[in-house]
Design a protein around this nucleic acid. Structure first.
Lengths: 144, 144
DNA sequence: TTGATAATGATAACCATTATCAAAATACGT
DNA sequence: ACGTATTTTGATAATGGTTATCATTATCAA
């Protein structure tokens, strides 16, 4: 049950920062992890609403920000104006290949590209902290 | 005078699509090109306001969209919630290296990375159409 | 010049996200 | 277990960038 690990991380972060735990945070974390996709705050709310209609959207935003702070989650900003949240713990770093027709996501990984990125940053006097790489194209199904 | 070329492209696009020309579009195009940076609609309005205080923000948005359609401009979406516009004509394709402290931009170019991207897309059955690569780090001046 | 249509400017609407604030929940020392 | 200080929550207002609306104006072709 991987949830236990993530919950431990969240609770550790809460303790370390003198925050307080709440049932809402556990519920949101579980819904987020089990959704298993790049989800928006609104979509998450719809899922949570079924069992917990009283959890407000503000709390979802606040909790997702918290999850990002403690390294369980990452924001994904595309061009539709909505922030998507992506699980990080136990997930290798990856970039995205996105079908512009159907919206399909493929997670991709290229150590070679990463190496080149570091090299470019160094050449320009930058200390590389992170990067964002999205590839846009037409997937197999859509190109038929 | 490179403006002439861009103006010709814009006017060609207008003619081809049975649109109508206007003085505002020329003014906005010129202000955009001479700003020579990744500019937001708001910043562009401030520049234009000095000589043409009567041009509305809606027209600026509409014109920038038009410039994107005819290939003179590209939208750049970062994480501050503002769309930036970047000149494309006569500019080689490039990605971005961004300082997370001072916001400095460096345009970067790596044919090797581009080649790897194509390879990855192909391996996943995608026809690659475009990509977006931003590197985030600390620039030389800020790391002192 | 006229008629059809596109463009403009002012502003309202939109929508995702954040701030506000009173009420409720939590943690901790006693 | 109790009281108290502090955090969290939920409802909702506010924010801010962008887009839609619409009456008026400008453009273009005949």
């Amino acid at each position: 049950m991987p949830l236990h690990n993530e919950l431990a991380i969240l609770n550790g972060y809460i303790r370390k920062n003198n925050l307080k735990s709440s049932s809402q945070r556990g519920i949101i974390l579980e819904a987020f992890l089990s959704s298993n996709r790049h989800i928006t705050a609104d979509e998450l709310r719809d899922i949570i609403k079924i069992e917990n209609p009283n959890i407000g959207i503000a709390t979802i935003y606040r909790t997702m920000k918290l999850l990002c702070e403690c390294g369980l989650c990452r924001e994904l900003i595309l061009e539709d104006g909505k922030t998507r949240f992506e699980a990080v713990y136990d997930h290798e770093h990856h970039d995205h290949l996105i079908c512009t027709k159907c919206g399909a996501f493929v997670e991709i990984l290229s150590p070679e590209i990463e190496k080149l990125q570091k090299k470019i940053a160094r050449k320009n006097g930058f200390i590389l902290k992170s990067h964002r790489l999205n590839l846009y194209g037409i997937c197999k199904a859509c190109s038929k």
